[in-house]
C-alpha cells in the first residue's frame, strides 16, 4: 500500500490517476446536489419555529463543516510537505487554501442571510459566525504568505508551516470565542451544533454534506492538475500531453 501511495505522490502518475476519476467526481457531485436540493427545498417539512428560512442550513451548515474540514486537510498536506517534501502535497496546501476560503466565505454570507429573517440583523457576534470569520482570516494568512514568496517550493513550505500553526490554534480560538460569547451574550443560537431536528429534515443535510465533499474532491483535483501542468511545463511528459491533446 505504501508503495502505491508513494508512487501517487509523483506529479506525473497522479495526473494520469486523477484524470480517470474527474468525470466520476463531476457526475457524482451533480447527482448528489440535485438529490440534496430537491429533498431539502421541496420534500423537507416547514420548520414550526423559523418557517421556510431554515432551509438555508442545507448550504450554510455543509459549507461551515467544509471550511473546517478543508483546513484540516490543508494542515495534514502541510505536515506531509514538511516531513516528506513531496511536490504533490505542497501543491495540495496552496490549492486547499483558496478552496477553503471560498467555503468559509459561503458559510459567512449564508449565515448572515439566514440571520436576517431569524434574528432580524445580518450580523450578530454569534460564537459560530465569529469563529467562521476568524477562520477566514487564517485562510487569508495562508494565501497571503504563499503568494508573497517567489520560489513556489519555499512558498508552499511556509504556507504549510502556517497551516500547521493555524490548525493547532483553531480549537483554542474556538474555545475562547465560545467562552467570550457566552460571557457577553445570552445564549441565542437556535440550532445547536448537532441539529436535533427530526430525520426528515436531517437526511437532506447529510446528502448535501456528502455532495459538498465530493464537490471538494472535484475542484481540488482540477486545481492540482492545473498547478502540476504549470509547474512541470518544462518536462517532457507535459509537452507530449499538450501536443497529443
Amino acid at each position: 500500500m505504501w508503495q502505491w501511495f508513494h508512487k501517487l505522490s509523483t506529479p506525473k502518475y497522479y495526473y494520469q490517476w486523477s484524470g480517470k476519476w474527474l468525470p466520476w467526481l463531476a457526475g457524482l457531485t451533480i447527482i448528489l446536489f440535485a438529490i440534496g436540493l430537491y429533498w431539502g427545498l421541496l420534500v423537507a417539512p416547514t420548520d414550526y419555529q423559523q418557517g421556510e428560512s431554515y432551509r438555508i442550513i442545507y448550504i450554510h451548515v455543509p459549507a461551515a463543516w467544509m471550511s473546517m474540514f478543508v483546513y484540516v486537510v490543508m494542515a495534514c498536506a502541510g505536515f506531509v510537505a514538511l516531513v516528506w517534501k513531496t511536490k504533490l502535497s505542497e501543491i495540495v496546501v496552496s490549492e486547499c487554501a483558496v478552496i477553503g476560503a471560498v467555503f468559509t466565505a459561503i458559510a459567512l454570507i449564508t449565515g448572515m442571510l439566514w440571520g436576517k429573517p431569524t434574528w432580524g440583523t445580518y450580523w450578530t457576534w454569534d460564537a459560530r459566525l465569529t469563529s467562521e470569520l476568524i477562520l477566514l482570516f487564517l485562510y487569508f494568512g495562508v494565501i497571503a504568505i504563499y503568494s508573497s514568496i517567489e520560489d513556489k517550493r519555499v512558498a508552499a513550505k511556509a504556507a504549510s508551516m502556517l497551516a500547521i500553526v493555524g490548525v493547532v490554534n483553531i480549537p483554542i480560538i474556538h474555545f475562547s470565542v465560545n467562552w467570550w460569547n457566552s460571557l457577553h451574550q445570552p445564549n441565542m443560537d437556535i440550532i445547536s451544533d448537532k441539529p436535533s431536528m427530526d430525520p426528515s429534515m436531517l437526511w437532506p443535510l447529510l446528502v448535501m454534506a456528502v455532495a459538498f465533499k465530493v464537490y471538494f474532491g472535484w475542484v481540488l483535483f482540477m486545481r492540482i492538475r492545473n498547478e502540476i501542468i504549470s509547474r512541470e511545463r518544462a518536462t517532457k511528459w507535459v509537452k507530449e500531453l499538450v501536443v497529443g491533446r
Partner: peptide
Amino acid sequence: YIWGSYAITLAAL
C-alpha cells in the same frame, strides 16, 4: 434570503 443564499452559493461553486 433563501434564494439569495442559494444563488450566491451555487454561483461561487
